[in-house]
């Protein structure tokens, strides 16, 4: 199979005068877990709704396995599982019934006995009581119902829209575990999430969107390279010249005995120059901290898209 599970090129979607998506690009390849990030209202859920054929794109292409997401929706949905961020269930059905109903709509050819034992195993790992009516479930438990229904079928693609919202940390770990398993089985996953540690643990690639537009995409290592490293060093000579160097930001210095303690952050692209300069100042000790994923994203969430594409930093540097 040569077609990518998800391929979105220059997608636009407007609701009247409001532009929800404004030139979005996103690719998810087979065997890849793709993080999908962006601030609230950036258009993540709209993108997913377009992918699911629930809303129609105004222009651009959105393809699942090479098929048209609108026209071939029913056939394509046999090959995917979806978990929304805010699961609403049929109030008079139990969790177990809702899971069975959703599974049967998939019309998979799995034999019933195997399905039943897998359901039991999933219910146990997510610690979900299937005999309760859906209206008595908490948000986290409704989320678990959708997760069990998603992992129960065996599709080629999983689409998760903030799937762990409302789950406790233990259940989040269970979710992480299941995603690793499907990844190991060669499935593709699109994971929209605000939980950055989850993204860092699971995702091979990350796409960050803002105001309906893709502002960054690549592997986490690639994204890291675009940003900066925090450096703290003890030097013998006067470091004031450093502050004016290109690529150095947030410079601080203080006396430490007969040495000077300096702290700054440096663009990764200027690392070599800065290191040379530091050595010239009589370097005594050095700690360099790569940016956390959190810092990485905060920068993208907070700044404007121009700032990012120019590789410049916004004024608000978010600490740890």
């Amino acid at each position: 199979m040569t077609e990518n599970p998800i391929e979105i090129v220059d997608l636009h979607k407007s609701f009247g005068a409001v532009k929800a998506l404004d030139g979005l690009n996103l690719v998810v390849r087979t065997g890849e877990v793709a993080g999908f990030l962006g601030p609230n209202g950036a258009g993540k859920s709209t993108t997913i709704r377009v992918l699911l054929g629930l809303q129609r794109a105004s222009s651009g292409t959105a393809r699942l396995f090479g098929g048209d997401v609108w026209r071939d929706a029913v056939a394509l949905h046999r090959r995917l599982s979806y978990v929304p961020g805010d699961v609403s269930l049929w109030p008079n059905l139990t969790g177990g019934e809702a899971i069975d109903y959703l599974t049967r709509l998939h019309r998979g050819s799995t034999d019933p006995a195997a399905l039943k034992s897998r359901k039991a195993a999933l219910l146990e790992s997510f610690e979900l009581d299937p005999t309760k009516k859906a209206r008595t479930y908490s948000k986290g438990n409704r989320q678990k119902v959708a997760l069990v229904a998603a992992f129960l079928v065996d599709p080629e693609l999983y689409i998760f829209d903030e799937p762990t919202s409302g789950l406790d940390p233990l259940m989040e770990a269970v979710f992480t575990d299941h995603v690793r398993q499907v990844k190991a089985a060669g499935k593709a996953v699109l994971l929209s999430s605000h939980i950055l540690s989850e993204v860092e643990k699971l995702c091979d690639t990350v796409t960050i969107i803002r105001s309906g537009r893709t502002v960054e995409s690549g592997t986490i290592a690639e994204l890291r390279h675009l940003t900066h490293t925090s450096v703290s060093a003890l030097v013998a000579h006067d470091p004031s010249g450093l502050a004016r160097r290109a690529g150095i930001h947030d410079f601080t210095s203080s006396r430490a005995g007969n040495m000077t303690q300096v702290g700054f952050s440096v663009d990764n692209t200027k690392m070599n120059d800065v290191m040379t300069a530091l050595t010239g100042l009589g370097l005594h000790s050095l700690t360099a901290t790569p940016p956390s994923v959190e810092e990485l994203f905060m920068r993208h969430y907070g700044g404007t898209s121009n700032n990012i594409s120019n590789g410049r930093r916004g004024a608000e540097v978010v600490g740890r």
């Binding site: 049929w90 059905l93 139990t94 177990g96 019934e97 899971i99 109903y101 049967r104 039943k116 009516k133």
Partner: peptide, 23 residues
């Protein structure tokens, strides 16, 4: 009060029609 329900759906609950009727 509501009692605990069934853990598995009846085999009939397998289509939107069955669900709409059930509701």
């Amino acid at each position: 009060h509501t009692r605990a329900g069934r853990a598995h759906a009846t085999p009939a609950l397998a289509s939107p029609l069955a669900l709409a009727f059930r509701q």
